[in-house]
Design a binder for these strands. Structure first.
Lengths: 313, 313
DNA sequence: ATATTCGATAGTCTTTACCTATACCGTGGC
DNA sequence: GCCACGGTATAGGTAAAGACTATCGAATAT
């Protein structure tokens, strides 16, 4: 059974005339005749009665027609849904976002995306960078935002921006200056992520470069929890500056720039290189970059010292 | 879009591996690869992500699959219903039967047919012969039982048997003998069908041959009505003997053989020559013939005189 | 590092669907 | 009753398309 035969069959059933039906499907009358004949032969039954003047369906033909039309309709729909997906008129986009980045980037991002693609079902998972990566590899995520560099051969990455890390301490803790050298971290009690987290490794690496050994008094896996612990005076911590700023409303935390050197890490998009990215995914990636640029130019990166000045004034 | 592509697509979606899928649809791996590629190109979207080890559906592929599978299922069903019809496991058979014949032939016929084909929906219309013919020509009927000969070029006829016509009179009417010559009909008041009916024409032709002019006192279109009028003494009538016998229970009618000559007409099957006849129709035609033969051998055609003798005894 | 699995591509061949021309049948008009 | 016409089936030649074998290239597993 060929799709061609089904199309010809429907045309003939509709026009009840081989020549007219043939015109409508843009073939010659003999071609249509042969195809209909082939279909009837395959089914072992006449589908049409050739009654001199008119050609009309047999009972078998009528039964066949019902299902044949449904089949064609389904195939049309199959193509339709794909085209709608391609035009981002429908579909689902699953994004994994590094928890800290999630806090300040995602809100404006999803609002813009929803505006542009109201019919795409967007799913955002705030996760540690490692889970974003494993989610991408397991094909659970369409796209990810995580820390760079990412030396995985199956993943393609697109740098978005760099995050500066800054020191966060309870207001009561005496740090001395608005800016602190890395090496001055040595005496501070620190609350950090567990050792298997990228951020922790990053901090340790920076400390090593500065020749200091951090005193970790508490490990917590969520940056949110860490900030709470710091606010209660458990110790200081080191977190992305932008993230902390978005959480700095309580008034019980102070943000102190680090330098010599300023620890920073790159954040970027990642996706499976071989995976097909539909329009929605491509546009989301684009939006990430433009949104981030606007965020940076908006705030012109006021330093931690300026923030403290503002809060004091 | 080709049906082949849909089949390959489903196979690949199922096995997630080009080579395996190719085996299952009995083609080489490159053939399947090309067809899938063609389908994706036509849809303008990747349907599968080729991820090293496994091949899995993209979101577009998943959407496409839903409808593609439904389409294939519909086509399977289309073939299925046709095959069931062909095997007479379903379907409908519309039969037009000459009213008089209907009374005695149809009961045993439908009972046998229903036994043999319980799932065929049988529709029997008792009609005058002319309507059976027009019904066949208009393709409203699958098969007809009507008077022969039938000189219509589009119709094929199969003789079944001959019906003898007999005189029916109210018991009070003095006819004189158990058999009556055609020419003796002259003085009798007759109740006959309207002139456009075959049976009426037949009677008139026989009368003309016998050189008599019938006195028609009443015309009625239904044989049932005619018998009632006769029973009430309105006059005598001429009807098929077998038909009258099946209605002879009241005791107020006498059946008298006609001879010199005995009027008789042929009854047979008819159907559109070009029309396709499925198994159910063919079997119905067969059953007509065998049932009729059995009816004839059963009763051994007792004459009207014998019947009257029986009733008298 | 090497071997193996797996998908894509190139080239050749076979199949098949298309077209034109024509035969055949039935119908309707003259 | 004969002829013409509308309409479908058939025949023969051509061109497109699918299938196959061989091979490449990439990625994974040993």
């Amino acid at each position: 059974m060929e799709l061609r035969q089904i199309h010809y069959f429907i045309a003939l059933a509709t026009h009840q005339n081989f020549s007219r039906a043939a015109e409508h499907v843009h073939v010659s009358q003999p071609s249509l005749s042969v195809q209909i004949g082939g279909l009837e032969k395959e089914l072992g039954t006449r589908l049409f009665d050739r009654l001199g003047r008119k050609v009309i369906l047999t009972q078998a033909g009528e039964l066949f027609r019902v299902h044949a039309e449904r089949a064609l309709r389904e195939l049309e729909q199959a193509a339709q849904v794909v085209h709608e997906l391609h035009g981002a008129k429908r579909g689902r986009l699953v994004v994994g976002v590094l928890s800290t980045v999630n806090s300040y980037l995602i809100a404006p991002l999803v609002s813009r995306f929803k505006q542009r693609f109201p019919d795409i079902q967007l799913q955002v998972h705030a996760q540690p960078s490692s889970e974003v990566v494993s989610g991408l590899l397991a094909n659970r995520l369409d796209i990810g935002i995580c820390l760079l560099p990412l030396a995985h051969p199956q993943l393609t990455t697109v740098p978005l921006f760099e995050e500066r890390l800054a020191l966060v301490a309870p207001v009561g803790m005496r740090i001395g200056k608005r800016r602190t050298r890395m090496q001055d971290l040595a005496p501070l009690p620190l609350v950090l992520m567990p050792v298997d987290y990228c951020l922790r490794k990053m901090v340790e690496a920076e400390c090593a470069k500065a020749g200091v050994h951090p005193q970790v008094v508490l490990e917590m896996s969520s940056p949110e929890g860490i900030l709470q612990a710091v606010a209660q005076g458990t110790g200081a911590t080191i977190l992305p500056e932008l993230y902390v700023r978005s959480r700095l409303s309580g008034g019980d935390l102070q943000l102190i720039d680090l330098y010599d050197p300023t620890p920073r890490h790159a954040v970027g998009l990642a996706y499976l290189t071989k995976r097909y990215r539909n329009l929605a995914a491509e546009e989301f990636a684009q939006l990430c970059q433009t949104t981030m640029k606007e965020l940076q130019s908006d705030s012109k990166q006021p330093t931690a010292s300026k923030i403290r000045a503002r809060r004091a004034g």
